[in-house]
Computed example of a mutant assay.
Amino acid sequence: MESASLQEDLAELDGLVETMDTEVRESGEIASRTDRAFHRTLHRSLGNDLLSEVLDAFWSAFHRVRAQAKGLGAAADGEELARMHAAIVEAVRAGNPEAAETAVHRHFDDIRSRLSQH
Protein backbone atom coordinates (compact mmCIF):
# COMPACT_ATOMS: atom_id res chain seq x y z
CA MET A 1 0.00 0.00 0.00
CA GLU A 2 1.38 3.42 -0.87
CA SER A 3 1.93 5.96 1.86
CA ALA A 4 -0.90 8.39 0.93
CA SER A 5 -3.38 5.52 0.77
CA LEU A 6 -2.11 4.17 4.09
CA GLN A 7 -2.53 7.58 5.71
CA GLU A 8 -6.07 7.87 4.33
CA ASP A 9 -6.95 4.38 5.58
CA LEU A 10 -5.44 5.09 9.00
CA ALA A 11 -7.40 8.35 9.25
CA GLU A 12 -10.60 6.49 8.35
CA LEU A 13 -9.81 3.73 10.86
CA ASP A 14 -9.12 6.36 13.55
CA GLY A 15 -12.50 7.92 12.82
CA LEU A 16 -14.21 4.55 13.07
CA VAL A 17 -12.54 3.82 16.41
CA GLU A 18 -13.76 7.24 17.64
CA THR A 19 -17.26 6.33 16.45
CA MET A 20 -16.98 3.03 18.35
CA ASP A 21 -16.02 4.92 21.52
CA THR A 22 -19.03 7.21 21.10
CA GLU A 23 -21.38 4.30 20.45
CA VAL A 24 -20.13 2.47 23.53
CA ARG A 25 -20.65 5.58 25.68
CA GLU A 26 -24.15 6.10 24.31
CA SER A 27 -25.51 2.54 23.98
CA GLY A 28 -22.97 0.21 25.60
CA GLU A 29 -22.06 -1.53 22.35
CA ILE A 30 -20.56 -1.01 18.92
CA ALA A 31 -23.03 -0.83 16.03
CA SER A 32 -22.65 -3.63 13.51
CA ARG A 33 -22.36 -1.12 10.64
CA THR A 34 -19.39 0.53 12.36
CA ASP A 35 -17.71 -2.81 13.04
CA ARG A 36 -18.17 -3.90 9.42
CA ALA A 37 -16.88 -0.56 8.11
CA PHE A 38 -13.78 -0.93 10.29
CA HIS A 39 -12.97 -4.38 8.95
CA ARG A 40 -13.72 -3.43 5.34
CA THR A 41 -11.35 -0.47 5.63
CA LEU A 42 -8.71 -2.58 7.36
CA HIS A 43 -8.56 -5.29 4.72
CA ARG A 44 -9.36 -3.37 1.52
CA SER A 45 -5.71 -2.30 1.18
CA LEU A 46 -4.77 -5.93 0.66
CA GLY A 47 -6.27 -5.76 -2.83
CA ASN A 48 -7.62 -9.30 -2.42
CA ASP A 49 -11.20 -9.31 -3.69
CA LEU A 50 -11.82 -12.93 -2.67
CA LEU A 51 -10.65 -12.26 0.89
CA SER A 52 -12.83 -9.15 1.01
CA GLU A 53 -15.88 -11.14 -0.08
CA VAL A 54 -15.19 -13.96 2.41
CA LEU A 55 -14.68 -11.53 5.29
CA ASP A 56 -17.79 -9.58 4.35
CA ALA A 57 -19.80 -12.82 4.31
CA PHE A 58 -18.37 -13.70 7.73
CA TRP A 59 -19.33 -10.32 9.21
CA SER A 60 -22.84 -10.59 7.71
CA ALA A 61 -23.31 -14.00 9.30
CA PHE A 62 -21.74 -12.95 12.60
CA HIS A 63 -23.96 -9.91 12.99
CA ARG A 64 -27.05 -11.90 12.00
CA VAL A 65 -26.24 -14.48 14.71
CA ARG A 66 -25.43 -11.72 17.17
CA ALA A 67 -28.80 -10.05 16.53
CA GLN A 68 -30.65 -13.35 17.05
CA ALA A 69 -28.67 -14.56 20.09
CA LYS A 70 -29.27 -12.08 22.85
CA GLY A 71 -26.26 -11.91 25.06
CA LEU A 72 -23.75 -12.64 22.29
CA GLY A 73 -22.95 -8.94 21.93
CA ALA A 74 -23.13 -8.38 25.67
CA ALA A 75 -20.61 -11.16 26.34
CA ALA A 76 -17.89 -8.76 25.27
CA ASP A 77 -17.37 -5.42 26.92
CA GLY A 78 -17.90 -2.66 24.34
CA GLU A 79 -15.00 -0.63 25.70
CA GLU A 80 -12.71 -3.65 25.41
CA LEU A 81 -13.82 -4.26 21.83
CA ALA A 82 -13.07 -0.63 20.97
CA ARG A 83 -9.62 -1.04 22.56
CA MET A 84 -9.02 -4.19 20.50
CA HIS A 85 -9.84 -2.29 17.31
CA ALA A 86 -7.61 0.61 18.36
CA ALA A 87 -4.73 -1.82 19.04
CA ILE A 88 -5.04 -3.17 15.50
CA VAL A 89 -4.86 0.37 14.07
CA GLU A 90 -1.85 1.28 16.21
CA ALA A 91 0.04 -1.84 15.13
CA VAL A 92 -0.66 -1.05 11.46
CA ARG A 93 0.37 2.58 12.00
CA ALA A 94 3.62 1.43 13.63
CA GLY A 95 4.34 -0.84 10.66
CA ASN A 96 4.55 -3.80 13.05
CA PRO A 97 3.03 -6.84 11.29
CA GLU A 98 3.63 -9.14 14.27
CA ALA A 99 1.76 -6.82 16.64
CA ALA A 100 -1.02 -6.38 14.06
CA GLU A 101 -1.35 -10.14 13.69
CA THR A 102 -1.43 -10.58 17.47
CA ALA A 103 -4.09 -7.87 17.83
CA VAL A 104 -6.25 -9.39 15.08
CA HIS A 105 -5.90 -12.87 16.61
CA ARG A 106 -6.90 -11.51 20.02
CA HIS A 107 -9.99 -9.92 18.47
CA PHE A 108 -10.95 -13.07 16.56
CA ASP A 109 -10.27 -15.27 19.60
CA ASP A 110 -12.80 -13.13 21.48
CA ILE A 111 -15.35 -13.58 18.68
CA ARG A 112 -14.70 -17.32 18.50
CA SER A 113 -15.15 -17.60 22.27
CA ARG A 114 -18.46 -15.72 22.19
CA LEU A 115 -19.75 -17.80 19.28
CA SER A 116 -18.82 -21.08 20.95
CA GLN A 117 -20.77 -20.08 24.08
CA HIS A 118 -24.03 -19.83 22.10
Rank of each mutant, 00 (worst) to 15 (best):
D77M: 09
E90F: 01
R64N: 06
V17E: 09
S52E: 15
V24I: 11
D35M: 03
A74T: 13
G78E: 07
R114N: 09
H39I: 05
H85F: 00
E80S: 09
F62Y: 11
H85D: 05
G28K: 03
Q68H: 11
V104C: 04
A37V: 10
A76F: 12
F62Q: 00
A103Y: 02
Q7T: 08
A76M: 15
F108H: 05
A86Q: 14
A94I: 05
F58D: 00
D9V: 04
F108E: 01
A4D: 15
E53Y: 11
A4Q: 14
A75E: 14
T41M: 04
A100R: 02
W59P: 01
F38L: 03
L51C: 07
F38P: 00
A4W: 11
A67W: 02
R112M: 00
G73W: 04
H63D: 06
I30A: 04
D77A: 09
D14C: 09
A103K: 02
D109F: 02
I30L: 06
L42Q: 08
L16M: 07
E8S: 15
R33F: 09
F108T: 03
R112V: 00
A99W: 00
S113I: 07
A74E: 14
F38R: 01
R106G: 11
A31I: 08
S27I: 12
L6C: 10
I30R: 01
S5V: 11
E26P: 06
D49V: 10
D14G: 08
A103E: 02
A61C: 13
G28C: 03
Q68M: 08
D21T: 14
G95V: 03
E26G: 06
G73R: 11
R25C: 10
M20R: 04
E8N: 15
F108S: 01
